[in-house]
């Protein structure tokens, strides 16, 4: 059972769809003929996709094609030039507390002398003005409940052993667990992750993918995840949106990641091979654009 603390959201996660409140029914995310322009250039257009509640959905595609833009549009951080986006039954940008967001990043500075548990706590009350009173936990039950909630999510993501260490000194996979805990601390109904597996080693990639899938299944949290490599998450996915060449194709992984679909999407011959261990390999995919750094300044040094 999803521990909800005192945030007033109790019961939302036990069975999404059984409650009558706004946004409880229907899809978690719906793009309807949406288009986005950045600095006068159309990034993608005519994108229609639907993510049902409780689904694990991946946004795939080569670098620079607008995957991050897609989820930023879903979060309401950038406006559409055409079409509409609905998130949890409301227009994008109006479901703030019910969305956990993990932006794309490389890592925390190695010298940052802040504990993992503090980073997770910021997820619960970081934007509140003022200063938390020292020893407030003993005086205010709400503070105590929030503190317990932080411990619960840290335990849920398996970060208890290293949450007390400076966050800059734990490994990339461990940092990613802490950041997932931070995104989960308020009990969101939708978890949006931008390249959470990026720059992790292979064992960390598969364990983080398994963790996200477990959160999705056991706690009925809809997951929308951006990736450029489908293999670590392929076995967990319910649906896929493949972005390329200014458009998108959506559906189940079996339908989308095929030679025919990708060839049509790229307008160049693309072949999907099935390796003996069940992995998919996409061959013939056009090279990512040379200048990728203009929209990802933090990741300019990425290979």
């Amino acid at each position: 059972m999803w521990p909800t603390g005192q945030t007033g959201s109790a019961g939302q996660h036990g069975g999404a769809g059984q409650h009558g409140g706004a946004g409880q029914h229907g899809p978690a995310v719906r793009f309807d003929r949406a288009a986005v322009q950045v600095a006068g250039r159309t990034i993608w257009s005519d994108v229609s996709l639907t993510v049902d509640q409780g689904e694990f959905m991946a946004v795939l595609g080569p670098n620079g094609v607008g995957k991050s833009t897609l989820i930023r549009a879903a979060l309401g951080l950038i406006g559409l030039s055409a079409g509409s986006v609905t998130v949890l039954g409301r227009p994008a940008g109006q479901s703030g507390r019910e969305i956990g967001y993990l932006p794309q990043r490389r890592s925390f500075d190695a010298g940052l002398r802040v504990r993992g548990i503090d980073v997770v706590s910021l997820g619960s009350d970081g934007e509140r003005w003022g200063v938390p009173l020292p020893w407030g936990d003993r005086l205010f039950p709400a503070r105590r409940a929030a503190r317990n909630r932080v411990r619960e999510v840290i335990d849920l993501v398996g970060a208890t052993a290293f949450a007390g260490r400076p966050v800059g000194q734990v490994s990339g996979g461990e940092q990613q667990r802490l950041l997932i805990a931070q995104a989960l601390v308020r009990g969101p109904r939708l978890l949006v992750l931008d390249e959470p597996l990026d720059s992790l080693d292979l064992p960390s990639q598969s364990s983080i993918a398994a963790l996200i899938s477990r959160i999705c299944r056991e706690h009925q949290v809809t997951v929308m995840l951006v990736a450029h490599d489908v293999n670590p998450i392929l076995s967990y996915l319910d649906c896929v949106a493949y972005l390329a060449r200014g458009g998108a194709v959506c559906g189940t992984p079996q339908d989308v990641i095929t030679s025919e679909t990708l060839t049509a999407l790229y307008r160049t011959p693309v072949e999907v091979l099935h390796a003996s261990d069940g992995r998919l390999v996409v061959v013939g995919e056009p090279e990512p654009p040379a200048r990728h750094a203009d929209r990802h300044p933090d990741t300019a040094a990425r290979p």
Binding site: L75, L77, G96, Y101, L102, P103, R105, F108, L112, V114, D118, V119, L122, G123, D125, G126, E127, R128, W129, G130, V131, P132, V167, L179, Q182, A183
Partner: peptide, 23 residues
């Protein structure tokens, strides 16, 4: 400083998430 301390700490440690949260 006391008024802005916690959001400032958030914006220092984690500027992207803080911005997404409306800080």
């Amino acid at each position: 400083l006391a008024l802005i301390a916690r959001p400032l700490f958030f914006a220092t440690v984690d500027p992207d998430v803080a911005a997404a949260r409306g800080v």
